[in-house]
Design a protein around this nucleic acid. Sequence first.
DNA 1: TATTCCATGCAATGGAAGTGCATTATAAAG
DNA 2: CTTTATAATGCACTTCCATTGCATGGAATA
Lengths: 142, 142
Amino acid sequence: MSNKAVENILNDKNIRPTAMRILVYQTLSSSETAISLTDLENNFESADRTTLYRTIKTFENQGVVHAIEDGTGITKYALCHAFCNEEKHKDLHLHFHCTICEETSCLTDYSIPKIRLPKDYIAQDVDLIVKGICQRCNSSAL
Amino acid sequence: MSNKAVENILNDKNIRPTAMRILVYQTLSSSETAISLTDLENNFESADRTTLYRTIKTFENQGVVHAIEDGTGITKYALCHAFCNEEKHKDLHLHFHCTICEETSCLTDYSIPKIRLPKDYIAQDVDLIVKGICQRCNSSAL
DNA sequence: TATTCCATGCAATGGAAGTGCATTATAAAG
DNA sequence: CTTTATAATGCACTTCCATTGCATGGAATA
């Protein structure tokens, strides 16, 4: 994705488009799977972890990325696809964690079924993680 | 739950019923919500964290408790209700995390809907966490 | 140009998970 | 009942990730 395109996106989200932020956005954009802070750190030989951390947090607060708890204990991040904003993340979709390659990905086309709850419970958010074998690992196992 | 009853349960699961383990089981048994290792530690003034850690891990491996990742980054544990064993945990149910009291609980009567996956994906396990307001906090807010 | 605000980088902290090893308790064998 | 082996416990330590405080640098605004 071009720098200019990213700049526009960040501006729309009220994020000042610094060089670092554009690079982080592009990294997230070009990754097929969700990435952790450490993954991100390894992609940038010279960048400080704190800067990346705060960049991600800014993105998260402004509705650019969403955090994924895939059960590994390590928080992963991926770009939001739906119309998320500072108020609320609205991309409720399935997350898949492959137990072989250990990658976590968003299955954005697979929405979360309506959940029935006991009386007097109020649902605000739903996280659905499916663990198993991804298409890639399943194919290469043949 | 009586010591004798717990002893029988642990024996059935091939866990030697030591005093510590019986106490840990009873703590889990009497808790309405899932508890973290730190919670457990605070319940036992004198017990060592490592012992509690390994006790929980033993319980988990033998199908006595299941771990819950509620998105807070802190692993919580609760007794299994279904027929879990060393091979596999079989109690696939909904977990609820209250954003007010921050308690996590098992809604064992609410099973997880069948999840549809893309072609060539294999599901092994499903975690469903609903975040919101629990019945207790909802009532007391009136 | 001066000022202000925000982003960045470095250092340090905190919390939780996990491991190695010595010691103690329990169960089994003689 | 004593010895022996095996498993549980406790202590110390390490590692990893998340997070914060503070000083510096750079960009936007007055």
